[in-house]
Nucleic acid binder design. Structure first.
Length: 357
DNA sequence: GATACGTGGAA
DNA sequence: TTTCCAAGTAT
């Protein structure tokens, strides 16, 4: 690892700050969460923006703030309603953790978002990045908010080849940012680095010729900007084949079930899924009876589709089925009308399946 | 420290 | 088609 001391030798911090901030003041993007410094709005935006593009977040942000305009509104909402507002955005534990944390803010902090690192980081879903983002953007504190943009920009500017996939590398960049951050306008400094990373110092084909800090960039000077940052590869994901059953009862209602309250897509709803190795109608019917206590008649396969996650892929084979005999004791499966489906949060693959109902 | 955790868009 | 990526966090 390169120490921050050697990285910052001969680096003109004041001049870098000045050029970066002047560029930001003239070119900053007009984003809905930049209208004010309301800590709750900043918080919601930062959670939504985790691993998610700005263009994707914008409509969700508007809708979410309309439905839950304050910490009190979000604290009082049903979790299902919150998940429904998050539907399609992904990483759903963000939504559940956010509501959990907001309820803690209402209970322990009188509804005021904490303005110190200790209390902020103790809240569910707030890690080192989000803590720094809230402290700097909402409270004007000179705290680092190191995300992928910051690591990419500083990897190039300071020619640092540490693997940004490693946790310890983030600590290095946090230490560097503490040295480099503007104390006059820490909020703008952090957002400027992120805007620069998103619009100029992009992962592929960075626009070095129009970069406001080109003259400070060792990566550019050495012609290695395309090689930085160093990032180790993710592993290939695993395939998981399922039969998905669109089951109708005699009233024409449709069977859905809620997923477990932890792990993948926690607490979301889905059409019943049967893990399969090979396609066998009897195997599926029998497995379903053993699991749910319901006899079904499997109909014809309607379609298949893939649902690609970060770490695995569902191979979904969609079947119609008819409820034959119901000897259930528990109500794990619920039958609802097509209209009622609209109030349940589903993963995107199951939203797409409604076309085959 | 490695892995789980979503989704849609770009090259 | 495949791969990578995007304002990370929890465990």
């Amino acid at each position: 690892m390169i120490g921050k001391e050697s990285s910052l030798q001969n680096f003109n911090i004041k001049a870098f700050q000045k050029d970066l901030l002047e560029w930001y003041y003239a070119n900053k993007r007009d984003l809905p969460w930049r209208k004010d410094q309301d800590p709750y709005r900043v918080w919601v935006s930062e959670i939504m923006l985790q691993q998610t593009k700005v263009d994707t977040v914008i409509p969700y942000f508007h809708n979410f703030l309309e439905k839950f305009p304050t910490v009190h509104a979000l604290a009082a909402a049903d979790e299902q309603e919150v998940l429904k507002a998050w539907e399609g955005l992904g990483y759903y534990s963000r939504a559940r953790n956010l509501q959990h944390a907001v309820r803690e803010v209402v209970e322990h902090y009188g509804g005021q978002v904490p303005d110190n690192p200790k209390e902020l980081e103790s809240l569910k879903g707030i890690g080192s990045y989000t803590k720094g983002a809230i402290l700097s953007i909402a409270f004007n504190q000179p705290e680092p908010a190191v995300d992928g943009n910051v690591m990419r920009v500083f990897s190039r500017v300071l020619n640092i080849d540490d693997d940004i996939a490693l946790p310890k590398t983030k600590k290095l960049f946090e230490a560097i940012t503490r040295e480099v951050i503007s104390h006059e306008d820490p909020s703008s400094f952090n957002q400027a680095i992120m805007d620069l990373g998103a619009t100029i110092c992009t992962p592929k084909s960075p626009a070095c010729l129009i970069c406001p800090v080109q003259e400070y960039c060792q990566g550019y000077e050495l012609g290695v900007e395309q090689q930085l940052p160093i990032k180790s590869k993710a592993k290939k994901n695993k395939k998981m084949p399922y039969a998905v059953l669109l089951i109708r009862n005699e009233q024409g209602e449709i069977a859905i079930e809620q997923r477990p309250d932890d792990g993948l897509l926690a607490n979301l709803w889905q059409f019943p899924m049967v893990p399969i190795q090979e396609m066998s109608v009897e195997l599926i019917e029998n497995w379903f009876y053993a699991q749910y206590g319901m006899r079904i008649n499997l109909g014809e396969k309607q379609a298949d589709l893939k649902h690609v996650f970060s770490h695995l892929t569902w191979e979904l084979n969609i079947f119609h089925a008819k409820l034959e005999h119901d000897t259930r004791k528990e109500e794990k499966i619920v039958f609802v009308t097509e209209d009622e489906l609209n109030s349940y949060p589903f993963p995107v693959s199951h939203l797409k399946m409604r076309e085959y109902l």
